[in-house]
């Protein structure tokens, strides 16, 4: 058994993590001790929204089309991890490995280019909604009793 185990090099990280946790617990406890515990009037405890009455829950729904950016980030993340693995090795100077890296990056960049090209077709923006709405309205006004439209 070798003596230079890997986790011995990470003992400062462990000490630092324990310090961070202890510090956060101390801060939370201190703010709990120091804050007033007598119930204030309801104006003070209510959510402050610039003088407005808060309406509805705070957790609202965002448009779905935002998730595509997170997915692009995850794919770039995985690509970066693979390139990081390559960058610590001297075989990256080998021409065959360089060509492999080139193909790898080209494939992923092609996918991202495809996603960026078709990104406008995945979300419905305001202008497009307006045009579709106007076209549908005009079509409806032309023949209000088209087949399939009666209830």
């Amino acid at each position: 058994m070798q003596t230079d185990r890997l986790f011995l090099q990470f003992i400062p990280v462990l000490v630092w993590a324990i310090l961070v946790i202890v510090l956060i617990v101390i801060m939370l406890l201190a703010s709990w001790v120091l804050r007033p515990h007598i119930l204030q009037n309801s104006e003070k405890t209510s959510t402050y929204e610039c003088g407005e009455e808060p309406i509805g829950p705070a957790r609202m729904s965002f448009p779905y089309s935002y998730i595509i950016y997170t997915i692009l980030f995850v794919i770039i993340d995985v690509m970066g991890a693979f390139l990081w693995l390559l960058s610590v090795s001297p075989i990256r100077l080998n021409p065959i490995i360089a060509w492999q890296t080139f193909i790898f990056v080209i494939i992923i960049m092609g996918g991202i280019g495809y996603a960026m090209k078709y990104l406008p077709q995945t979300s419905l923006d305001g202008q497009e909604t307006l045009e579709a709405y106007r076209a549908a309205k005009a079509r409806h006004l032309e023949k209000p009793h088209a087949p399939g439209r009666e209830h």
Partner: peptide
């Protein structure tokens, strides 16, 4: 791990 990223997305 990389396949897990793809299937989660």
């Amino acid at each position: 791990i990389s396949v897990a990223a793809a299937h989660t997305a």
